[in-house]
Amino acid sequence: MLAGFPGLYSLLIFSLVLNLTVGVDVGCQNWTPSGKNYVCCTSCKPGNRLVKRCGYDPAELCKPCEPGTYITGTDFSCDICTQCIGIQFVAKNCTSSSDTVCGCKPGFRCGDAKCSHCVTECKKGEEPKGRVCGQCPEGKFSDKIHSTCKEWTKSSCPDGYKLKKGNLTSDSTCIPPPSSSVRTVTEQETLPVISKEKDEMNWLPVLIAAMIAGLALLCIILSVVAYVKAQNKTKKKAKTEQGNSDDSTIMVVEQEHCSFHHPEQEQGGSSQSINTENSESKLIV
């Protein structure tokens, strides 16, 4: 098709070389032939605005946006970069091909996709109402940050189960009876392990108490044995002292008895001695 337009062919070659050597970010990116030696731009390079639709030189059809402006398509004008103000902060700077990206300070969040403004971030139990938050009404809950309140879903429970009313942050739930044997598979698998650990923990204080009781009993036995030995020793000592006292009494009685008869013996002896002396005198005479 370009064979019938030798001048246009040369112009395209020149424009390609110009784009490769002078600057690839300036000018038209895609164009189509239009008339004799004319081209019409279908899309500009990123960050370039359209100066005129058709012309001889594709590089002259588009120009870069001025500082502080940007463009995202093929148009004749660039838009002014967004300014982040107030509780916003700049998350990404503006370029010739993209607008500024704003963010919101902690406690707030973007109010729309472009984050053109910030709204208060709602906590659990609250829901957004415009740019502020409102508490969930009775019968509704919100278990996620900055989410819409939802209706309580549990309205009835199986036989034996008790319905626990929901609150601002949680849904209604069914609570099994205390003696219920209903368990999930996970609970059934972990129950033996838990029971074993509980049994070991329950035996530990019993073992300690038994050891303490055994030591106490041993101390009592030793105390009783020592007391019995002491009593026996005291009794033996008392008996020994009593025996010694009786012997002394007998000796005293015997001595007194001997002293009682001794004068008579002495008297009898005196008479005998007198008679003996008389007899001896008579013999001598």
Rank of each mutant, 00 (worst) to 15 (best):
M201V: 13
S181F: 09
M201F: 13
R183S: 07
S195V: 13
L217G: 03
P205F: 07
P176Q: 03
T186S: 14
T173P: 03
I212T: 06
P192D: 06
A209H: 06
L218W: 08
C174L: 07
D171F: 00
D199R: 15
L204C: 09
T184F: 05
L207D: 08
E189Y: 12
G166S: 01
L215N: 02
A209C: 11
P205M: 10
L191M: 12
E189W: 12
N167Q: 02
D199W: 13
K198Y: 15
V182N: 11
Q188W: 11
D171K: 01
P176G: 01
S181Q: 12
P205A: 07
V182K: 10
K196A: 14
K196R: 14
M211Q: 05
G214R: 05
E187P: 07
L215V: 05
I175A: 00
P177I: 00
I208C: 03
V182A: 09
L215R: 07
S170W: 02
V206H: 10
L191V: 08
I208P: 01
S180K: 00
S181G: 13
L218M: 11
S179E: 01
L218V: 04
E200M: 10
P192V: 03
S172Y: 02
T190W: 12
D199E: 14
T169A: 05
E200K: 13
V193H: 12
L168F: 08
L168P: 07
C174Y: 03
V206G: 04
T169F: 02
S181L: 11
K196S: 13
L204T: 09
T173C: 06
K196P: 05
S172W: 02
C219A: 10
S180R: 00
T184R: 09
W203V: 02
P192Y: 03
P177W: 00
T169C: 02
E189I: 15
T173R: 03
S195C: 14
R183G: 03
I208N: 00
M211D: 06
D199H: 15
A209S: 10
S195N: 15
T169S: 06
G214I: 05
T190G: 07
I194A: 07
R183W: 07
S179W: 00
S172I: 04
T173M: 04
S195T: 12
E200L: 10
S170F: 10
M201T: 14
V206K: 10
S172N: 05
L168V: 06
P192R: 04
P176A: 02
L217S: 09
P176E: 01
V185R: 15
S179C: 03
S172C: 08
E197I: 14
V193Q: 15
N202L: 14
T173Y: 07
T186F: 13
V193F: 14
L191G: 06
I175G: 01
V193I: 15
L191A: 13
K196Y: 07
L168H: 09
W203Y: 09
D199I: 15
C219P: 01
S170P: 03
M201H: 11
T190A: 11
A210N: 13
